[in-house]
Write a protein that binds this DNA or RNA. Sequence first.
DNA 1: CTTTTCATAGGTCGTTTTACCTATTTCCAT
DNA 2: ATGGAAATAGGTAAAACGACCTATGAAAAG
Lengths: 226, 226
Amino acid sequence: MGSDASNTNFVLMAKIKVVIVEDLAEVAEGLTAFIQQDEALQLLATYRTAEAAVLELPLLKPDIVIMDINLPGMTGIECVRKVKVLEPSIQFMMFTVYENNDQVFEALKAGASGYLLKKTPPFQIIESIKELQQGGSPMSASIARKLVTLFVDQHTVKATPEAAVLTPREKEVLNLIAKGLLYKEIAEQLGISFHTVRQHIGKIYEKLHVQNKTEAINKVFGNRVQ
Amino acid sequence: MGSDASNTNFVLMAKIKVVIVEDLAEVAEGLTAFIQQDEALQLLATYRTAEAAVLELPLLKPDIVIMDINLPGMTGIECVRKVKVLEPSIQFMMFTVYENNDQVFEALKAGASGYLLKKTPPFQIIESIKELQQGGSPMSASIARKLVTLFVDQHTVKATPEAAVLTPREKEVLNLIAKGLLYKEIAEQLGISFHTVRQHIGKIYEKLHVQNKTEAINKVFGNRVQ
DNA sequence: CTTTTCATAGGTCGTTTTACCTATTTCCAT
DNA sequence: ATGGAAATAGGTAAAACGACCTATGAAAAG
């Protein structure tokens, strides 16, 4: 490996192969300039649409793709999803002006690993490309906060007004519901009657303002489904 | 607000009040130097132990605490947990050489918002303090990757042998079940009949070897209950 | 060209869940 | 000691669910 680097003793490793997918010419040109300035990076191509990228990326097999989200036609997120199943080794860095919660989470689920805002200073963009190549998930601090908040919400029994009202016994019952037990099984496990279980569950639903098991579980344990 | 900045037209906002909790003298001194060099930051104090910090932080009320994790006696994580309940407005930046998964997640659950590795270059540490103050969650790219990986694992239908058997339509139905929708609501949403929904769900249960909604959700999405 | 799978639609029947009631005992706080 | 909530137990009835069937058209696999 590294035979293409034999004519220079400066670059010891192969250059990081980068592709840009961005419809705005100015943004694409700006990125291009920064990338071309860096010895460790090699810009392979720039696409204006997700449709073009979907066709070409699996053939080009770059290391890193800088992907705009709001593209005409297919979104950048959809593009990541499609390419990622074909070539999971390609790393995607989302690049957008917006920091909409759902977009962030959708992009990550689609297979993106990095998420930068367009206001990120150029030197940090370059730095982030290298971090992404090394297996990191570089992201703007405000984006990271969204992930942290979600994580914390999911791993703490919510201290929301609603959940806080549940009595210890009710929380106990709710935990057993979440395990998938039937009313009669919960009754047996807790050594109380079937009717009492129903009574507890009714109170839980009332306090949480929900109508069924699944909603209650989603409400008290962080909701992991969109 | 800002009366203490009236004698200079350079600093428009109050300085960011920083505290360091770190037992290693060299590390603490290094951090101190960087912080004191920056006009926007003000170092209030440095503590050598978590025990001392727990007592003093609620009184000092700094904006930001740079917190080492591996302290003698009480850990930095435990310290964050204790102080955070008393003064939730204090923002904690974990600062450690290790990037152990559990430690990262425990620190975030305890209430930390930022997480830097000690190898982070000084200018980035300073930058991160400011980002934390502005409500972001600055973290090293490798730390962020841990969060992203966990998030993706939790929000994708598991690649278990069982779940892999589900058809695209079945996965779609399962996602709607997980949201707490009724059969008739799923039918409406997908534009198919109530009977077809039952048919899909029956097949899902059969393939997953489960008997009801909750078990199916627990099986395919990571188990949220202990 | 046949077989299988998928997605669709339907029926029946028993079980489970949920809503809406009443009621008793205990314990805690005013 | 009285009022309130928590935990217990029960009844009734409707809605939702799940098991077990059949069946058809399209698409994929053989």
